[in-house]
Design a protein around this nucleic acid. Structure first.
Lengths: 109, 109
DNA sequence: TAAATAGGTTATAAAAAGTAACTAACATCA
DNA sequence: TGATGTTAGTTACTTTTTATAACCTATTTA
């Protein structure tokens, strides 16, 4: 067995760390979570906050974040129908974990 | 002027926050910084730590991280020549800012 | 009736990342 | 001396992700 594989097997946390970096390493994920951290938002509101993010990709990201339990989708039965997205507890904690990165940005960029 | 543009102009930090998320939103950036946080490493060492990252992209990421002052490139004039990469202070602080994300991963994944 | 809004979907194009083979410069093995 | 290996990449080509823009259904407002 080669060294790098050995290292991975010896460290079950590495998978989780790697996974988390793949997650926030997807384009727009960080900004979407940041946007939702100050409260639930509708599809078009998120889109207005991040205008460079296309609706197609926003929709894709929302589904991915739902699938991994980071956001909730709430369909509000008003007329016209509205869908609201909010962070789960898991998602809120990820959002809070990203705050130091924002502070770094404030200081260094 | 539309609302989203207004919001951006009202918040000069938004650019920095957005930029930081685009930075860590690039594939492999987080893991590379994480890897260098425990000490300087050579090209092939980083590659051994992150075997799924191709040499082509590793090289590209290294250049990008150098360009934005996050890592240093040290050519060591041994025979054969070795290059060592280390985090700058700016880079080290980014690495530390990412630790809460790793703790989140440990807890939730 | 016409245009607008909300929350998407679709088709297609461009950009980013993956794969594998190749290189230069030297070192070691036999 | 020649074959093989190492380090730090580069190159050409393929696949995957993102971007762009048009379209859609249901409903509301002018």
């Amino acid at each position: 067995m080669d060294e790098e594989k050995k290292r991975k097997e010896d460290c079950p946390l590495c998978d989780k760390i790697e996974y988390s970096y793949q997650l926030i390493g997807k384009k727009w994920i960080g900004l979407i979570i940041h946007t939702l951290l100050d409260g639930p938002k509708r599809f078009s509101e998120i889109h207005a906050y991040i205008p460079d993010l296309s609706k197609r990709v926003l929709n894709e990201r929302i589904k991915e974040l739902e699938d991994c339990g980071i956001i909730n989708r709430n369909v509000i039965p008003t007329r016209p129908i509205r869908t609201e997205y909010s962070l789960t507890i898991k998602g809120t904690e990820l959002g809070k974990a990203l705050v130091p990165v924002e502070q770094w940005a404030k200081k260094w960029l």
